[in-house]
Nucleic acid binder design. Sequence first.
DNA 1: AAACTTAGTTTATTGGATAGACAAACTAAG
DNA 2: CTTAGTTTGTCTATCCAATAAACTAAGTTT
Lengths: 386, 386
Amino acid sequence: MTTPTGDQALIKRINTAIVLEFILRGAPLSRAQISEQSGLNKATVSSLVQDLIDGSLVKETGTGQSSGGRKPVMLEFIATSGYAIGIDLGVNYIRGALTDLRGGIVAERTSSLRHPEPEAAVEQLCNCIEALMAEAPASSYGIVGIGVGVPGLVDDNGTILFAPNLKWRDVPLLRLLTERFALPVTIDNEANMGALGEQKYGAGRSISNLVYASVGIGIGTGLILNKTLYKGTSGYSGEMGHLSIEAHGKSCTCGNRGCWEMYASEQALLEQASSLGFEDLESLLAAAAEGRQDVLALFSGIGEYLGVGIANIVNVFNPDAVIIGNRMSQARPWIEGIVRQTVTQRALGFHLRKVQILFAELGERSSMMGAAEMAIAGFFSRVKAT
Amino acid sequence: MTTPTGDQALIKRINTAIVLEFILRGAPLSRAQISEQSGLNKATVSSLVQDLIDGSLVKETGTGQSSGGRKPVMLEFIATSGYAIGIDLGVNYIRGALTDLRGGIVAERTSSLRHPEPEAAVEQLCNCIEALMAEAPASSYGIVGIGVGVPGLVDDNGTILFAPNLKWRDVPLLRLLTERFALPVTIDNEANMGALGEQKYGAGRSISNLVYASVGIGIGTGLILNKTLYKGTSGYSGEMGHLSIEAHGKSCTCGNRGCWEMYASEQALLEQASSLGFEDLESLLAAAAEGRQDVLALFSGIGEYLGVGIANIVNVFNPDAVIIGNRMSQARPWIEGIVRQTVTQRALGFHLRKVQILFAELGERSSMMGAAEMAIAGFFSRVKAT
DNA sequence: AAACTTAGTTTATTGGATAGACAAACTAAG
DNA sequence: CTTAGTTTGTCTATCCAATAAACTAAGTTT
């Protein structure tokens, strides 16, 4: 019982997953096409497709073009046979979406987080979820799951061990939400969710190895290696914000010195900007847009340090892409050049050949979409197991 | 044909692998035990075991103890049904071993590399391989493959793109060896091989996530994530020697500044030691053993910088273990304390809970054993595919 | 010696994939 | 409009691996 053994059910799961994957990607396509492209026998495809149709996951949508024979019956995934909820719990906001099974946003809600204490915040979170659930149209599977991205360390039991900017410690969010909604819930770090969101729906679509750097108040990173989210042993890898880039630099609250996020985060930017009379990122962005030289110099400095860290990432992971996300991605016009330049200078030549430096396509929605994707992926893995 | 589909052969492969895995690990055990522990039916196990026996991979070794019934027939893996060759091609030596399929060393050869030019070195390498092959006893499968670890960047075609200390560029070693020996050959970075060697036969036995830091002239790292060697997109990840730990530190030949290996490698140690009149690591180790304070201080400095880099590794990967290997591991008595102390100070508290800092158990043989393991693993994956 | 235990094999059954035959539905050429 | 040829999708018989259950073999315990 220790090892998962192979039996016929496993075969069927594998092949059903393959067929579903083809229908998900290939838009409208026929049984014949699936058979040819997948290598599965026509009869096998027919049988599996029938199961998917019976399970309300796939439907026939009329006939397609013929090239001299019987017209094919086109198949399509029924994205509205279920809905997922994705939440980005930020330091001072809650952003949530109701999506269909293809990740299309059906409803969205944003509210500012007035009381960051765990109890009040969780209550507000639950209200948001309930409001979104109420907006879901009737469907075969209903709400298939809830995903939540949080700005802190999450262990493998879904407990928030430590969220410095929220000042939370040991909040068993998974348990709280599971008890309340009796639905599958996934909790993970905001950067991991962002990485997943961009990999599935954003700048990193179908890229195998990517690193998502969430540059906000602090810096977090999400690692997608071999198409899978890599989580360390305890479930919390990717704390690259606390990668030391100046061994004898500024002391960080984490105990280390010269942490990357002390030089390249929004926090670092704001500290330098205070002497110029700025208090938030938005006003700095506006000033930069007007061409203020001193502000542009600030962004340039941040960009350079971002590049230092990204060069490290490139050298360590040799990824296909590094995606810069979260709030700092808005500064793209004023940091992109210097980031690229610094990375080119510092990363190893061989690694540079293939790596792309990208900015988050989903903008502020990366993390929320990743959370929804978690719920959707969980649903699929359960369906396929049946 | 694009996707690997599921069929009955796949099931059989999976289950055969499970059975073989049990026999490999569980030393002498019976069919009944395999059935019970794996969850496979007794009949299934009997049938698969018979196939393995027919394939000369397993044999029956008499009966075991009974606890009130028929005595079990014990099974054992036949490690001598084939042999593998593992080579560690160093900067100034070639170390090679002939091992059985369990990684037991049957013969070993070390020679110093007199002429590091590619042609002469490859010739010497081939001679070493031939000599080892000649020592292999007769067996069912003969030599099942050759693995070679090299001190440089290797692409996914087995070409050595760049080996700075050997001054090699674009040497198609995989092709050269395959043509000469007509055997499966695997070429990889010395640090990747070392990681594999320690994970399979050394300090990291059966650890899922580990980082192996090969600290020699330079510093390389091998990443084992989820029990698999992680290789980046182009096949060359893990260049953590060129992780910048001092953003404005010394310029490195790689183009970056403040690279880890400029502060924590053997090279860095020797540079500092030259003013004291030392020229190699061995004499420094001897002096440290005699208690020379100035030398101990040098080691202490190296240990601290090693700790800085390892703390970074821990924060990024949240691994179960970090293993310090290659030549610097000999300095364990004089660096272990300061390394541990620095890591404890600098890594995030949550990550420290589980991580172990270890030193290579296989010493100078890590890389060579990993190379042999590559060949063995390749053989198994081929056998199981039949 | 009888009753019980445990190991491993044999037998019949199940369920999924497959090749090949086939029917349905179409295009195109004469 | 007929006929030949093509493509789609289903049906049927077969194969094969895993399995449960019966069975044989070979012990131990009372």
